[in-house]
């Protein structure tokens, strides 16, 4: 163990520079979030992940955000175990009928102000499961969505970009607003 620890001290870090949030996501957020809400949203965000019928592919890539290459926590973003500690629900899957109530109750248990991010093609609109008797067809069919991150599954860097849009400093957002208004 000592060897591994020493080596980690002298080896260059694996962690990569952050990706810039994408214009598309910033625009979506600017539209979704009120000014007051954005001011209250600090630099530090607690995220509660909810699998609402995903194939688990999105979870694998969300997990990857915690590895040394992406190191999500350096941005003040961290995953929490309870919705009561969360600012953001990160939801995956087409929302199965069997998970709908659990998702709604998780949302109700999250204190205000709160945001909802739908990650993955299934969460966006049901993806390839849309039309099934067993799914609602996307998170927006059940709850108000603030941000969507498409992909099957989205790559970790795409998820990171989307989440960074949530904590981008206000000036950048003002610029975005100016550009889009």
């Amino acid at each position: 163990m000592r060897k591994l620890l020493f080596e980690s001290l002298i080896r260059l870090p694996l962690t990569e520079p952050p990706p810039a949030p994408e214009q598309r996501e910033l625009d979506a957020l600017a539209a979704a979030l009120g000014e007051r809400a954005r001011r209250r949203l600090g630099r530090s965000l607690a995220i509660r992940e909810v699998d609402a019928g995903s194939c688990n592919g999105c979870e694998l890539e969300i997990h990857a955000l915690n590895n040394a290459f992406y190191d999500l926590e350096r941005y003040g973003l961290r995953f929490v175990a309870s919705p009561r500690h969360a600012d953001v629900l990160l939801v995956t899957g087409p929302v199965t009928k069997n998970m709908r109530e659990a998702l709604e109750r998780t949302w109700q248990a999250t204190p205000d102000p709160k945001w909802l991010v739908a990650a993955g093609d299934c969460a966006v609109d049901g993806g390839c499961f849309a039309g099934s008797y067993a799914v609602e067809g996307g998170v927006a069919a059940v709850l108000p969505v603030d941000l969507t991150i498409p992909g099957c599954p989205p790559r970790p860097v795409e998820i990171l970009r989307g989440l960074l849009a949530l904590v981008a400093p206000l000036p950048a957002r003002e610029a975005t607003r100016g550009a889009t208004s």
């Binding site: 019928g53 087409p94 069997n98 998970m99 659990a102 499961f129 099934s132 067993a134």
Partner: peptide, 11 residues
């Protein structure tokens, strides 16, 4: 179990 049943075989 059954919470993530999506109806794959029907689809």
């Amino acid at each position: 179990l059954g919470y993530v049943h999506r109806g794959v075989e029907s689809l």
